[in-house]
Amino acid sequence: MLDLDFARDLVMTGVIFGAAAFVWAGWGQERPPEGVTWRVVLVVLQAAGLVLVSFVGIHFLPLAFVFGQPIMVLAAVLVAAAGIAALLLHWKVAAPSFWCGILAGPIFLGPGAIAFVPALAALGGKLSPRAPGGSPSPTR
């Protein structure tokens, strides 16, 4: 049922299902049955989903070594911290999903831009799949 040869894919699958649990349990908060019990159950489900989603930050740690890119360690620490912060911030001000987006969005953009700009310069500003002269670029 699970192909352990692709552990990185399994981690991402866990994150996707964690996000789904978080979102669906959040929808369940709209109008649950009377009483506090169902709200508590839904919050527990959301928290568990958020824990899985915050693992995506930790997921960057092994990738940092695989790709030889230390910036991914920074992203791992910051994204995990953003997931934890989203869980702890005041939910009456905004939903945890808002806090995840507002805190983690810049974290993803920062290292992404830091990696992209020098890569673009290294490519000579060309993002074309063809080499000069019209022939396909060589495979590395």
Rank of each mutant, 00 (worst) to 15 (best):
D3H: 12
D3T: 10
L4P: 00
D5N: 14
D5T: 10
L10T: 00
V11Q: 03
T13P: 00
T13Q: 07
G14V: 05
V15L: 03
I16T: 12
I16E: 02
F17W: 13
A19N: 03
F22V: 02
F22M: 14
V23Q: 07
V23S: 10
V23L: 14
W24G: 01
A25C: 10
G28P: 07
R31L: 07
R31M: 08
P32R: 04
P32A: 04
G35H: 06
V36E: 13
V36T: 11
T37Y: 06
T37V: 13
R39F: 07
V40L: 09
V41Q: 09
L42N: 04
V43G: 11
L45Q: 12
Q46H: 03
Q46K: 10
L50M: 15
L52N: 05
L52S: 11
V53T: 14
V53Y: 14
S54T: 14
F55I: 08
I58D: 02
F60H: 14
L61Q: 07
F65N: 06
V66E: 13
V66L: 12
P70T: 08
L74D: 04
A80T: 15
A80H: 11
A86W: 05
L88C: 08
L89H: 00
L89Q: 01
H90W: 11
H90F: 02
K92L: 05
V93R: 13
A94H: 12
A95S: 15
P96N: 07
I102L: 15
I102V: 15
L103R: 09
P106N: 01
I107P: 08
F108H: 14
G110Q: 08
G112S: 13
G112P: 06
G112N: 09
A113N: 02
A113K: 05
A113S: 12
P118V: 03
A119P: 05
L120M: 13
A122V: 02
A122Q: 14
L123P: 00
L123S: 12
K126G: 10
P129R: 08
P129Y: 03
G134Y: 05
G134K: 05
S137G: 10
P138S: 12
T139K: 09
